[in-house]
Design a binder for these strands. Sequence first.
DNA 1: AATCCGCGCAACCGCTTCTCA
DNA 2: GTGAGAAGCGGTTGCGCGGAT
Length: 257
Amino acid sequence: MMNTSVTITKSSRVRKGAWTEEEDLLLRKCIQKYGEGKWHQVPIRAGLNRCRKSCRLRWLNYLRPHIKRGDFSSEEVDLILRLHKLLGNRWSLIAGRLPGRTANDVKNYWNTHLQRKLTAPHQQERKYNNALKITENTILRPRPRTFTSSSAKNVSFCSNKSITNTVDKSAHNNEILNICEKPTGETTSVDEGVQWWTSLLENCNETEEEAEAFGSFDEENMSQSLLHEEISPPMQQGQSGNWDDFSADIDLWNLLN
DNA sequence: AATCCGCGCAACCGCTTCTCA
DNA sequence: GTGAGAAGCGGTTGCGCGGAT
């Protein structure tokens, strides 16, 4: 769907609105040449009259290779439901477990499909009751973190499976790493962290029937797909530059099972 | 055929967090 | 320790499309 209206703000003369094919081409070439990152330099390098945010968003949500289009599969929907129940509106984190899907996609899908279903009239009462429950359990909201070489040393407690050599600056990885951090920001020992997660998931199970009421929730398939992903990670090399190593969240993954 | 209206999605905006000097 | 700039995120908006009337 193309938005044909394009505005250029007077103050900054930065172009807004729908991207043209020409702009896409320029941005793609720029990223191919210089790589992702340094977004503030991208508009200049690409010769685009766009702000850095716009460039970044366009790349991440539309131009990046291996972006999956079309309907979400039932497996993907199941995964979104489970992860959302666990993490709340952490779209980037949820999208990180869905190969080829962007945070924007997941967010849009949730807002247009899943949220509506969950608040359908016949479920309104249940939903309300469950919502009350949820407020009792603080939704996990890990914040994005990036790790400097020094700070990386302090997260070794998370590495019971393998946070080994990859301490890159990807937000996705860092968020996963950061899951071993309590919402308050204080860190924990490995055991503490696992206990904390376990109790969190136990609480999550209280709302399990809500997801089951959804109809498409298939526990068996889910387990299999999750199991499969442990063996064969969902985000393949090259699908996202931010997912070179996601083994760090396998503990989270086990807990999800 | 014309109009209305809801839906889906791309894009924008404001805020938070991180990095670095 | 602090402030500025960059990066990233989630919430929201707005437009085009397609089905309903």
